[in-house]
Design a protein around this nucleic acid. Structure first.
Length: 146
DNA sequence: GCCAACGTTGGC
DNA sequence: GCCAACGTTGGC
C-alpha cells in the first residue's frame, strides 16, 4: 500500500491513536478492488512513494475490512467524488494498524534487481497502482532484503 | 520540474 | 464503442 510520506508517512501512522488509520482516498478501481479482497489480520507493506527514497518502510495489519469511504461524500475533502453517493457508494477503505518499521528503507531499486520479484507488480513498467497484491513468495523475499 | 505511462472523460 | 484530450502518478 503506497502513500506519499509528505501526505501520510509510516511515522504519522505510529503517531495515531492506537496506531490505527483509515486508509481513505483510494480513487482507482483496480486498487479499490484489491482493497476489498483484504481480510482482517492480513498484513501489508507500507510503501513510501513520490519522495527522496521511494521504497518499502514497514509492515501494517488490516484491522477492519473494506467499508464505505465517506470522504467521497465530503465536498470539502480532497477526495470528494460527486459520483459516489450514499445509495450507491463507489469508494471503499480499510483500517490499518502499525506493526513494524524497518530499520531502513527497502528501496525500489533493490526490489527491481531481485530476480525473484520480477513478477511483482510494483517493479513492473508503468506501475501506478497505489494498492498491489503480494504473493507469499514475494513477501518472504522482500523480508529477506532487510 | 520533467515526462512517460496510465486512467478517465466526453464528443461523436 | 472509438479515441483524442486531458488529468494524475511517480520515478528520476
Amino acid at each position: 500500500m503506497k502513500s506519499e510520506p509528505n501526505v501520510f508517512s509510516i511515522d504519522d501512522l505510529i503517531a495515531r491513536p492506537n496506531q490505527i488509520e483509515p486508509w481513505e482516498g483510494v480513487r482507482n478501481y483496480q486498487a479499490r478492488n484489491f482493497m476489498r479482497e483484504m481480510e482482517c489480520d492480513d498484513l501489508a507493506f507500507f510503501y513510501h512513494s513520490n519522495c527522496k527514497e521511494a521504497g518499502i518502510v514497514g509492515i501494517m495489519k488490516i484491522v477492519k475490512s473494506a467499508y464505505v469511504d465517506d470522504s467521497a461524500f465530503d465536498e470539502k475533502s480532497p477526495y470528494f467524488d460527486s459520483k459516489s453517493t450514499l445509495e450507491k457508494p463507489r469508494w471503499w477503505r480499510v483500517d490499518v494498524q502499525f506493526v513494524r518499521k524497518f530499520e531502513r528503507t527497502i528501496t525500489l531499486h533493490e526490489l527491481k534487481i531481485q530476480s525473484e520479484l520480477a513478477d511483482f507488480q510494483l517493479v513492473q513498467r508503468g506501475n501506478r497502482l497505489s494498492i498491489l497484491p503480494v504473493t507469499e513468495t514475494q513477501w518472504e523475499c522482500i523480508l529477506l532484503q532487510i
